[in-house]
Design a protein around this nucleic acid. Structure first.
Lengths: 157, 157
DNA sequence: ATGTTTTAAACCAAATCTGACCTTTGCATA
DNA sequence: TATGCAAAGGTCAGATTTGGTTTAAAACAT
């Protein structure tokens, strides 16, 4: 029994997959009517699943002709991963964001699917036992930052 | 005369046996109602009988559409991965021992060199910031156990 | 008798969903 | 031109729906 948020997420990602440019423009009210939910539900989905650390940017415009624009961010071959991602990661990384980040890295061809699954298996809340939430989010951020530094090094040598 | 925990264990294992994929998704509340017990009883069973060392992985999600997912790893006796999972890792793993373990896994062809380097970069003491030594060694052990469980699962699928 | 496993209960945390109220923008028209 | 209305979208707090953790007592085994 997939949740409404999950369905909306899938729907938007399907739209993005159709667009070669990696940009989708849509109306919030269209989505909320399509899924028969309150408009703020859409904001919830955008803010939990389409953040920079997960490889997305969201721009909006109010008023007549308003829209929600979702952009899938692309990483270049020669981009410095740390420059591109350290800010987005910050000093705290929740399990949810972390899984979004690994999915992004996989989708961008930076890590393999296997690596994504292995990282995810190590970084779950359930695995980081006996720690406060803020400690967990802290070391997740730290681990991903250092992992990216190592990836970067391997790319440039 | 068989204990409640035992019954719940058998029930879950029967569900798993029905699934060719070796994956079962179910709600904790469904189980606790079915067995007419408190919900935490389910957690007790999961944490005592469905651990990575015992050949299972458990994933959960809270909130609407939440679930408990139990994955059977189908371990074969007598292989290196299995040995590493059950013997080499205790409940504590120092940075040094951890690097020894990743080197061993690499030698045995279980992980790639790149994976070894990435894991090592994430699991250093200085990366696991703000924790007591025993906490660090603890979650390192937990992370490696879960990582190996995932490796094992991927091997069989 | 003692130690271990099991069970229950009270309390905690995370993810989702809703609704009331607010802000911005474009356009029509006084 | 000023201004008011309609048409977007935004924010936030609280309710709802799951699952998690801790602790103490009960049951069981040695």
């Amino acid at each position: 029994m997939s949740s409404l948020s999950k369905q909306i997420e899938e729907y938007i990602k399907a739209l993005l997959a159709q667009e070669t440019a990696g940009v989708v423009e849509i109306q919030r009210n269209f989505l909320s009517e399509y899924f028969n939910c309150v408009p703020s539900q859409i904001n919830y989905v955008l803010s939990t699943r389409f953040t920079p650390v997960q490889g997305y940017m969201v721009e909006t415009r109010r008023g007549g002709g308003g829209f929600v624009r979702i952009v899938s961010l692309q990483l270049d071959e020669d981009d410095d991963l740390q420059d591109a991602l350290t800010d987005a990661i910050g000093s705290q990384l929740t399990q949810n964001d972390c899984e979004g980040l690994t999915a992004y890295l996989y989708q961008q061809g930076i890590i393999t699917q296997r690596e994504m699954l292995l990282f995810n298996s190590m970084l779950k809340d359930r695995v980081l036992t006996g720690l406060e939430k803020s400690q967990r989010d802290n070391i997740r951020a730290s681990m991903m930052q250092h992992m990216l530094a190592m990836l970067n090094m391997m790319r440039h040598t």
